[in-house]
Computed example of a mutant assay.
Amino acid sequence: MAVLRIDASIQGPRSASTELADLVESEWAAARPGTEFVRRHLGAEPLPADAWAHAVHAGYLPAEQRTDAHHGAVSLAGQLAGELRAADAVILALPLYNYGISQHAKVWIDLAIAGGELGERLLDGKPAVVLTTRGGAYGPGTPREGWDHNTDYLRRVVADMWGADLTLIEREFTLVGVNPALDAFTEAAELMRKTAHEAAAQAGRVLAARH
């Protein structure tokens, strides 16, 4: 069994989304020894920001008129789409940045779409664990309710466009303890952390056993 893992955090060892993905992976590996994990860390090794445009433009050009940049982008897009097709399951650790999806994850998604067939469900019926984290709080009644433009987008792409069997795990208030202005929310943040960690561990166990 092969599991594709994608991380997009820029926080290195301090990353809350990576911490959650590590829990899913460790529980999955324990429940199903021998699982192959294929990893891409988009935050540590970003994809070229201009590759998507080159891949799209290449589709309108005869092969003999394509530049090296076109050929490279088409090859990369095909590779990324192929990784999704080849995976039996995916773990996607994709945090919210500046109220939306990170540029690293957006480039990856755009290129994977460009590398597939039109309308292709790259994860059709496959389990996908999406782990997304937010520094503040964006739920109903909060001052920034409605400012999260990341989570619904991920649902649309991973579940609706790519056809995955989606498990979504969210954690908020990851900046509590970092930003003194949020110190009043320490108790709530710790509860959110505990809940997300338990959900991540359970997802790893359950999905590995099921698939």
Rank of each mutant, 00 (worst) to 15 (best):
M1N: 07
A2V: 10
V3N: 04
L4I: 08
A8Q: 04
S9Y: 02
S9F: 02
S15V: 06
S17T: 11
A21K: 09
L23S: 06
S26W: 00
A31E: 13
G34D: 09
F37H: 10
V38C: 04
R40V: 01
H41S: 15
L42R: 10
E45D: 15
P48T: 05
A55Q: 10
A58K: 02
P62T: 13
E64H: 14
G72M: 10
A73F: 05
A81P: 02
L84P: 04
L96P: 00
Y97W: 13
N98C: 07
S102D: 06
H104G: 01
A105D: 07
A105R: 02
W108F: 15
I109W: 02
D110G: 07
L111N: 09
A112C: 10
A112V: 09
I113S: 07
G115E: 05
G116A: 15
G119N: 09
L123Y: 04
V130T: 14
G135M: 08
G136Q: 03
Y138I: 07
Y138L: 13
G139A: 12
G141M: 13
R144G: 00
L154V: 10
L166K: 07
I169C: 03
D183V: 11
F185I: 00
T186D: 06
T186V: 05
E187C: 01
R193A: 13
E198H: 12
Q202Y: 05
R205D: 06
A208K: 01
